[in-house]
Design a protein around this nucleic acid. Structure first.
Length: 658
RNA sequence: GGGCCCGUAGCUCAAACGGAUAGAGCAUCGGAUUUCUAAUCCGACGGUUGCAGGUUCGAUUCCUGCCGGGCCUACCA
């Protein structure tokens, strides 16, 4: 409702100005919220920008606009006034309250068509860590926002099961631990197999460093994996499948689900790349280098470097005397190596052509993971089941991938553009965010010994290769244990199962909120003290507000849903106006106004791909509610009509918080 | 060398298109509970928004140049 009235106000000002000065229409009327409620609900500084149109000081202009607005009036608004140069507006409070109780929502103006969100995409060779949690939580929250706004969304988690990362763990099992396939299979069935791989992966990296000759094992293994019939390929497959299953379980603990898991192995085996390669060559997006550093490779000009390079000293093509139009080798991106194998970006280009339905090929599908709510998660296969949902071929895509990969993402976008699919490229959004790193203090707490250089840093990058990081399940376990201790002491009368259930919800709330409260460009310097906090600006703070609201209804013997159906009929508009008038009512009114903003905030989150705005909104709403809760005894309110009004306030805030 | 990002209170972070007195949380100190359970609330303390210019009626926000930090810049993924 907030956005609805904001637009009405802007339109009203625009019309007023048009009437005053028809030959110079003002297109954009800025609307903001005044710093204090007593100044009004909306404010426009439009008068500042009109000084050139009307030779008068801004306060005069503001007064004139107010006079015009008051002449006609605006539906839903109570009054307008000029505060210095600002044009301020007050809503008809009772009107907004009635609309909110009825949960009226003006239509979202977000466009239609299916959206594909790709997130998580964790290499299936080790346990998920806090960096992956940020990714998955941002992605899952964004999916929920899109669905709230009425969009159809498919959630995909891309699995790179054929790269060096999986190969390295295979090397660990076969070369360091010298385990047989049967032994690895037995290990893979154990509870936290991904933890085992976490340690092994770090050992493999060390083993490579000890003797560079050990890297031969990686090459051999990579080569062996390519032959799908080989024993090595079977081992790689069982490892990646087992770790992938663990990742799904970890994310499932946080209520994060996926619809489809496309795997790199199918991109290769179903010849997605071959189809893409043909098109890329035809469109001259890829060119063959016959000499120089990249001799024998198929290359693409690096994304974002439209200009000629100034440092093209060794391109060797200045001898013909004309200004070179060639891009330097530094600006080339190798897509196909000289040995004929395709790199990661190439496979990603093929995958993205498939996403937009531009490849002319499809995956095979089979069911892979069943969620407790009976939702199926599908995985790619070469053959697959006949009866499967239709994936891909979507209108828009969002890739939740950290900022370090923006160059690779831009390359894929440029490839689409180069293929003549500019409209697809325009609907391709790299949902970029910064990494999660560890503070030196946190690293020390985990028992890592740091170099003097690292100790002086503000934060240190997590490294799966080094086994340096906080595992997702460990953090969640700690959060649950910490919450459980509190629940145990606060609610000893509850059964242990119930206490664990509550502790788990609190832990999930704390973790999800923690990952969302930071804006995307901010590096999260992870610290246990901050992450394990349940007080102040945290998830549990907001959850607690809902619990309080719920317990008011419980104590009153009311069901919130049935209560709200007819509460409006029990309070007259006159009573509402009465309760909402005067300086004392401003505090409650602020709560209603904030409640009206949810859909507006969510639209902002989607438009800017920034879920942190919603986290902030939730916290502010909870904060206002707690203040209200403290100063207004509700169940003991003697005036029955006023009590109904207070209960309605609790109901709406609770609904919006949830 | 080039590209992207960050720098705001002791700490961690906010501040929609440039707008009214730059806000929260944590920490510290002082208060509030026979109540809808205090994982709460109220108050105090805390700022030359890294530095210097520029644009503007107005700059934390936009532009330029410095300073400090991070990431990317592989025939890895």
């Amino acid at each position: 409702m907030y956005r609805h009235y904001q637009r009405l106000f802007a339109e009203a000002i625009r019309f007023a100005l048009l009437a005053k000065c028809p030959d110079k229409p003002v297109r954009d009327v800025p609307i903001e919220q005044p710093p204090l409620v007593r100044l009004g609900d909306y404010s426009s500084p439009v008068a500042f920008q009109l000084v050139k149109l009307f030779p008068a000081p801004p306060p005069r202009i503001a007064q004139e606009i107010v006079a015009l607005l008051n002449q006609t009036g605006v539906l839903g608004f109570e009054s307008f006034e000029a505060k210095g140069p600002y044009v301020n507006a007050r809503l008809n409070r009772a009107g907004l309250v009635i609309a909110l109780i009825a949960d009226q929502r003006p239509e979202s103006d977000i466009s239609h068509g299916k959206i594909l969100v790709e997130h998580s995409s964790i290499n299936p060779n080790k346990a998920a860590h806090i960096g992956h949690l940020r990714n998955a939580i941002l992605g899952d929250t964004f999916v929920r926002l899109l669905r709230y706004a009425g969009r159809e969304v498919d959630v995909q988690n891309y699995i790179d099961n054929t790269g060096v990362q999986v190969a390295d763990v295979v090397v660990g099992f076969t070369h360091i631990e010298k385990k047989s396939r049967a032994e690895i299979e037995a290990l893979a069935g154990r509870p936290r197999f991904d933890y085992y791989c976490w340690d092994l992966y770090a050992r493999v990296s060390q083993w490579y460093e000890q003797d560079k000759a050990n890297l031969q094992a990686r090459l051999q293994t990579l080569h062996a994996i390519e032959d799908a019939a080989s024993d090595t390929a079977a081992v790689a497959d069982l490892i990646s499948i087992a770790v992938l299953r663990r990742h799904l379980e970890t994310m499932d603990r946080l209520d994060i689900e996926y619809d489809f898991l496309p795997r790199e192995s199918e991109i290769l085996h179903l010849h997605f790349w071959d189809a893409a390669f043909t098109k890329l060559k035809e469109a001259l997006v890829l060119t063959f280098e016959s000499e120089g550093k990249n001799r024998g490779c198929w290359v693409m000009r690096r994304a974002g470097t439209g200009q000629k390079s100034l440092t093209a000293e060794d391109t060797g093509n200045t001898e013909n005397g004309e200004v070179s139009e060639e891009v330097s080798e530094e600006d080339q991106k190798v897509i196909v190596r000289s040995n004929g194998t395709v790199g990661y970006v190439g496979k990603d280009i093929a995958y993205h052509m498939w996403k937009f339905g531009l490849l002319g090929r499809d995956f095979g599908y089979r069911k892979f993971y069943l969620y407790p709510n009976h939702h199926d998660c599908w995985i790619s296969t070469t053959e697959g089941e006949k009866d499967h949902p239709h994936f891909g071929d979507v209108a828009e895509i969002y890739n939740v991938i950290d900022a370090r990969q923006s160059e690779a993402q831009n390359t894929v976008i440029e490839a689409l553009r180069g293929l003549g699919h500019g409209e697809a490229a325009d609907r391709y959004t790299h949902f970029s965010y910064e990494m999660v790193a560890l503070t030196p203090r946190c690293a020390a707490e985990l028992g890592y010994t740091l170099s003097e250089e690292d100790k002086a840093r503000p934060y240190i990058e997590v490294s799966g290769r080094k086994g340096f990081g906080v595992k997702a399940d460990d953090l969640l376990d700690q959060l649950i244990a910490s919450a459980k201790k509190e629940v145990d002491s606060r609610h000893p009368q509850l059964g242990d199962d119930e206490r664990l259930r509550i502790a788990t919800q609190i832990a999930i709330g704390a973790l999800r909120y923690f990952m969302l409260k930071y804006t995307k460009p901010s590096v999260i310097a992870f610290d246990f003290k901050e992450a394990l906090s349940f007080e102040g600006e945290t998830g549990p703070y907001a959850q607690y507000a809902v619990v309080r609201a719920t317990s008011i209804f419980r104590k009153a013997g009311l069901d919130p849903e049935t209560f709200c159906k007819d509460v409006a009929s029990r309070i007259s508009t006159g009573d509402l106006t009465n309760f909402l008038t005067g300086a004392e009512a401003n505090e409650i009114w602020e709560l209603w106004l904030a409640s009206s903003k949810t859909a507006y905030v969510i639209d902002q989150c989607i438009a800017t791909t920034e879920p942190a705005y919603l986290a902030k909104h939730v916290f502010q709403l909870a904060q206002l509610f707690n203040t209200f809760y403290h100063s207004h005894p509700i169940l003991s309110e003697p005036d029955e009509t006023r009590k109904q009004f207070l209960l309605a306030t609790v109901f709406v805030v609770r609904r919006e918080l949830i």
